[in-house]
């Protein structure tokens, strides 16, 4: 018998520090598989954020830089501009990308920076213990929206992919989910397209990944994956929002 599925080379052997059932691990693996498949691990520089995936540098088996909260797209810009032949990606959560780093992501997309952004949307701040994120759903209870998010005073959940799709500089933008095998397979394809765009020097690519946070949602991992299906996907529809003709 032959091994048909195993750990990608672009992941280290270090066990993930994520909670049981957290989708970060799946997202890491998909990115690593894509780096393997393109054979670019040794030419890749990743930028990890502040948040649960602050330790991503331990897990990705490539050069990594850790950014200040929200600043990964700016750091990736500096890296890519000085090393245009390197493959550069950022890995950011929703607090990082859609709150404190809103300016950085909007302008990196608008400049059409030739980088790939992996955006984990789990509708909550994980590492700080479950506070409201810009993507927290209306009515969702968090540490800082204890009576449910009231859009009238706390704002509406931001649909990042749709928002960034209005920018002409963005080349590839999609939203995927990791709540079931079929969606994971689609997510992988989408991540691959995003890196293909970068390899082809076609500009900015971003994959928004709807993910679960069982711990801070107060659900079991299985229930959390269901919650993604029942609550997140209806508000955050899956699909491609910007696609260059060549990879459509």
């Amino acid at each position: 018998m032959k091994k048909v599925f195993g750990r990608p080379v672009s992941l280290t052997d270090v066990p993930f520090t994520y909670c049981p059932g957290c989708h970060h691990g799946i997202a890491h693996r998909l990115v690593a598989e894509v780096l393997d498949e393109f054979g670019v691990r040794e030419n890749t520089i990743g930028v990890c954020p502040v948040g649960c995936s602050v330790f991503a540098y331990l897990f990705f088996n490539c050069d990594m830089v850790c950014a200040a909260h929200g600043r990964a797209p700016a750091i990736a810009t500096g890296i890519k501009r000085s090393r245009p032949d390197s493959i550069v990606f950022t890995y950011q959560g929703d607090g990082d990308l859609a709150s404190i780093g809103t300016a950085e992501i909007v302008h990196a997309a608008n400049r059409g920076e030739n980088i790939t952004v992996i955006f984990i949307n789990n509708a909550i701040y994980g590492m700080t213990g479950g506070q409201m994120a810009p993507t927290t759903l209306a009515g969702q209870i968090t540490q800082t929206s204890p009576y449910g998010r009231d859009p009238k005073t706390m704002g509406y959940p931001i649909r990042v992919s749709e928002m960034l799709s209005t920018l002409k500089g963005a080349t590839y933008i999609s939203r995927v989910a990791l709540n079931k095998p079929a969606n994971i397979i689609k997510a992988k394809k989408s991540i691959k397209k995003a890196f293909q765009v970068q390899l082809d020097r076609k500009g900015f690519s971003l994959v928004e990944i709807l993910s679960s946070c069982p711990t801070n949602w107060g659900l079991s991992p299985v229930e959390a994956s269901k919650w993604v299906e029942e609550n997140m996907i209806p508000y955050y529809p899956l699909g491609e929002f910007r696609v260059p003709e060549e990879v459509a």
Partner: peptide, 16 residues
């Protein structure tokens, strides 16, 4: 391999 691709900890290998 559905189990393996779903595993968040990349703890499953599949042989065929």
């Amino acid at each position: 391999a559905f189990c393996a691709i779903t595993c968040p900890d990349v703890a499953i290998e599949v042989f065929k």
